[in-house]
């Protein structure tokens, strides 16, 4: 009886331990970190207007419109959500440690929705990531950075050195994936933001 109880206890502890583990990118090995920071190539040019056609799916609802992003200075980006007619729906400014809403229409001020946008766009627009881990895969180098009580992993293609994906993870679970399709450096052609713990995705297509 005692042996079977012990066995069950050991198995349970193993399962709990696995669940508490830290996320590690698949098919990649930990290697020496040789850089202290990684510069985000996207949205980094203050002279450019980054204008996207946006499609959001949130809890089964489909919302379309335009998203405009502008780098205001070294730290701050301004983000505007608008209808296709151009009417502003939401206007905020964001940096690594601030989030200021300039304008919203009724319905765009849901706290959970705004928090999700704040977290997503902070990661998307962050100019520089402090790197503390590096992994090597077959075709990519993956840089890890501590963010928002978790880690963000930056996937750079070995061949063309483009940042094509970011994964935000807490403990052992992927929470958010950012995917970039790119032909030029600072203006990604297409960006997907996919939440894994709630039915929320944002697709941005350059216009």
């Amino acid at each position: 009886m005692q042996k079977s109880v012990l066995r069950i206890l050991l198995i349970s502890l193993t399962l709990i331990w696995t669940g508490c583990g830290v996320y590690q990118p698949e098919n990649a090995e930990l290697t020496t970190t040789t850089i202290s920071e990684y510069s985000n190539p996207y949205f980094s040019d203050t002279t450019k207007d980054y204008v996207y056609k946006a499609n959001m799916e949130i809890y089964g609802r489909n919302l379309g419109g335009i998203v405009v992003i502008k780098k205001i200075n070294e730290d701050i980006h301004r983000v505007v959500f608008a209808t296709d007619f151009g009417n502003k729906l939401l206007d905020f400014e964001i940096s690594s440690d601030s989030f200021k809403v300039n304008f919203f229409v009724d319905g765009m001020d849901n706290k959970r929705f705004l928090k999700a946008l704040e977290d997503d766009f902070r990661m998307l627009l962050q100019p520089v990531y402090a790197i503390n881990k590096t992994f090597v895969g077959k075709n990519e180098i993956i840089y890890g950075s501590e963010q928002n009580s978790g880690n963000i992993y930056l996937f750079e293609n070995k061949e063309d050195k483009f940042l094509y994906k970011m994964i935000f993870a807490r403990k052992s679970k992927e929470k958010i994936t950012f995917e970039f399709q790119n032909k030029k450096d600072t203006f990604a052609e297409h960006i997907g933001i996919i939440h894994h713990n709630m039915p929320f995705t944002i697709q941005l297509t350059k216009i």
Binding site: V68, K70, F85, G86, K88
Partner: peptide
């Protein structure tokens, strides 16, 4: 032709 002017942008958005 639609021109959307936002003061913080360098150019109007044209659709």
């Amino acid at each position: 032709v639609q021109h959307k002017h936002m003061s913080f942008l360098s150019n109007d958005i044209e659709t």
